[in-house]
Design a protein around this nucleic acid. Structure first.
Lengths: 213, 213
DNA sequence: GTCCGGCCCGGACGGCGGGTAGGGGTCTTC
DNA sequence: GAAGACCCCTACCCGCCGTCCGGGCCGGAC
């Protein structure tokens, strides 16, 4: 049996959600709250498996308490009317594993509760769409390209270039790797030639794009 | 009526998918293919709304043709047995808007087809979960922090620091912005002081983290 | 063995990068 | 309207960066 707490400032909405969820035989609503602080208290006291958390509420809103609720143990599904980018970002960073709009069909709501209870995630289709595009944009496209450009470097060279990308000077790198500063310069110079870069800054950019730190 | 093409190397799977989808009154399967090249041909000839594309197939596999199929117009849903990270990455980068596992319940499959046909996206719960965590990890956490650190800079200083982050030297920056090299140095120096950075490399890293180009 | 090639190391020189000081412009503040 | 603060620009000095050159080391080819 999946134990759920429902949080929304409107009693009518809470009642509706309760009806929908209780209709599923494997789900039971063990508590309700009307604002963020109530949600946190219930999460600690009742130890539910899932918390349905409304975004906009008077007092402490849902996005604000979301990190604390997550820390208390239960999986969190955010519930809102509008899928604003900022809402989604904050919710996901807070550790929410669900983000649904209030026009979600009842059946899907129960499915979402089961999904997150099982350790997986469920998002509204529009949210998923934008998450994908943001992933495809800043995704591993540049990363792989950068790694491929860094391929011709020797192990030692790469090691030094990584130090460069940390913003360290040649003298400092020499100390860290216990070698002469002249040697560091030579390695950097070789790397610059191999990568057809003019600056050590460009080396740093490459390493950064390649996600090496 | 949503027009769908089903692509899988096993005829039995194709038949099963067709049965499932045709059971929905608003969906019709207009074509089938057994490999990637067939999928591409059908996509061009039949102009379907959605293509269900298996990942592993003899000959041209699904991930390889996915970009071309997407370019041909239809929405692409990838279908696979295992949700390997590499599969998901390549599929999303290729422009797929769906990624489902073959153990998806029939009802969800029809839902997914409708969802992507409407311009949204649908992923298997396990895929969604990892997409979220990768988003939360490398998400706007550092980005916002970096922007906050860059806040004290004046407009001109930021402009110059961005040039620095592109790997340009002071002389080149001076040419681009039509000012003296000495001026560029002064601005860089101010920026270094304000941001408590020692190197121009560290400036570049900050700008890069802040996603400013 | 000997030659060859790649990698790691080091030294000496020219040029770029960064620090300091100061002048001119505009907008607030009293 | 004068003082002050802020931003933008410029000029000079020094240290760091990058290049060129060369030497020691290890592996494979013949």
């Amino acid at each position: 049996m999946i134990r759920v707490v429902v949080v929304d400032d409107e009693q009518l909405v809470r009642a509706g959600l309760r009806l929908i969820l209780e209709a599923a035989e494997d789900i039971t609503v063990v508590g309700e709250a009307a604002d963020g602080s109530g949600a946190l208290e219930q999460a600690h006291r009742l130890r539910p498996d899932v918390v349905l958390l409304d975004v906009r509420m008077p007092g402490v809103d849902g996005l604000t308490v979301a990190p604390d609720v997550v820390a208390a143990g239960p999986k969190v599904i955010m519930l809102t009317t509008f899928d604003l980018d900022e809402y989604v970002h904050r919710a996901l960073r807070a550790g929410a594993v669900g983000f649904l709009l209030k026009d979600t069909p009842p059946r899907e709501l129960a499915t979402a509760v089961r999904t997150v209870a099982a350790g997986n995630a469920m998002l509204a289709p529009t949210v998923t769409r934008r998450l994908i595009s943001s992933f495809a944009d800043r995704g591993p496209a540049r990363r792989d390209a950068a790694r491929q450009r860094l391929a011709p470097l020797t192990a030692r060279e790469l090691e030094i270039v990584r130090e460069v990308a940390r913003g360290h000077g040649n003298a400092e790198i020499a100390r860290r790797l216990t070698m002469s500063e002249a040697t560091v310069k030579a390695h950097v110079s070789r790397a610059l030639a191999k990568l057809q870069a003019g600056n050590r800054v460009q080396l740093a950019i490459l390493v950064h794009d390649a996600d090496l730190l």
